[in-house]
Design a protein around this nucleic acid. Sequence first.
RNA 1: GGCCCCGUCGUCUAGCGGUUAGGACAUCGGCCUCUCACGUCGGUAACACGGGUUCAAGUCCCGUCGGGGUCACCA
Length: 475
Amino acid sequence: MIELGTDVRVRFAPSPTGYLHIGGARTALYNWLWARKTGGKFILRIEDTDRERSTQASVQAILDSMTWLGMDWDEGPGKDAGTGPYFQTERVAIYQGYVDKLISAGAAYRCYCTKEDLDRARALHKARSGSEQGFRYPGTCRERKTEPAGKHVIRLRAPSTGSTHWDDLIKGRIEIGNDTLQDSVLMRGDGIPLYNLGAAVDDISMGITLVARGDDHVINTPQQILIYKALGVALPKFAHMPMILAPSGEKLSKRHASVSVMDYHEQGFLPDGVLNYLARLGWSHGDQEIFTRAELIEKFNWEHCGDTSARYDLKKFQHVQASQLRMLSPSTLAQHVVPFLAKRGLTVSANDPRLLTAAPLVQPRATTFIDAADALDYFFRPAPVMDEKAKAKFLGADRLPLLGKLAAVIEPVTPFTREPLESAVKSWLEQEKLELKDVAQSARVALTGRTASPGLFEVMEVLGREVTLARLRHG
RNA sequence: GGCCCCGUCGUCUAGCGGUUAGGACAUCGGCCUCUCACGUCGGUAACACGGGUUCAAGUCCCGUCGGGGUCACCA
């Protein structure tokens, strides 16, 4: 059991090279949940050192996605708590300071090899081994006595003997032989840090106590531990979570599914639906599948994070989303669905009594807000959009007299609500020796334009007397 | 290829030496019923393989096979 404490400081450190991916969202979620559970701090840091690929639009997309999901950060863009700035490109002076310390500690050195030198060495390696893989920096500048003026990168002086290990919160003890390490570049010639330096220095200077990230970073951890040790700083805990795979087992990408968080917003998913699904993809709490946000915070832990990669499953995702949608109060559902009604050209107020009455009717019939808006459509149009096939089948000329009678039967019913309507219609049917199913589908098509809808009397109640009678009489 | 991680129903998972291997999604069938859903009842379906250790192995160890990650002046 990991101790709770107020000293928990976790972070999510995305690179703004695209939208926020659902894999990234899950990484953020586990960190955020842990911070909220423990009363610790959740820090958002933007790792924008790849100038070529980083864009302002991506930064905004990440911020928007985090905000939509409701994962608020305690420190980060717009919230400086003294550990900022939170964009790595604004922290170059900090990295330079740490690099100086690393060099004087003998843990790093300046390397003056040019790109061409390295390309030559790499070509030589390939010629010998038949592959570019496995190339290691030959160490040309490692023991250099003189320091020529000029452009240089900073390299890690990696040990070649012994091993580096840590106890991963998810994967247990991991040990990697130092002979697999190499003198990798920590800082570019232009003073911009590379991932391992930036991440380690930021985690140190921001006081991060638990580094939780995707397990594609396992291999980076030894180098970062080396940096911590060279600086004489206490190590954080590490938790490496498995990746999310496509249903086919490949790395999940756009080709397989909607991977951008904001896609789910547009598709009418609930933030809580996304969070619930992502939480269960790689973490469990006994047999429970559906969690409120508060339950997630209360119950999340690292012990029950699985160490196997999980495959994305839209069907299950939809089920979780539908379950979350059903948990909404009518007024909350109304608020969420109004923009989706607007997209259909239907201007409806979230306080519209028809909407509030209809909301519980569509709730068990919808997965997303798009579905809900579709199911609500005919309540708010002057006339329903008619399914022509249904009309041909159920609204033939022979059916109209019956619907006229039905209209006459319900016309005087007061109040115009489901129970009185139902009993009035039932007793009429009894007299006529008819069954409800003899008239129900025709009435449904007349009222809604389609063959599937909530119960007939509920629909009538929402439509109200005027509209119901008009539609039955083919207004 | 080297190094690292992983292997329970199709999928997400529970399990932490003794279970008729449980739940959920999906799927199939029944019930409910004015349609469609919701709900509900039930079925099919899994410990990758081979060696150990042990009275006893899905649970521990080794190997094989399989999957994934990573080997950049990307992150």
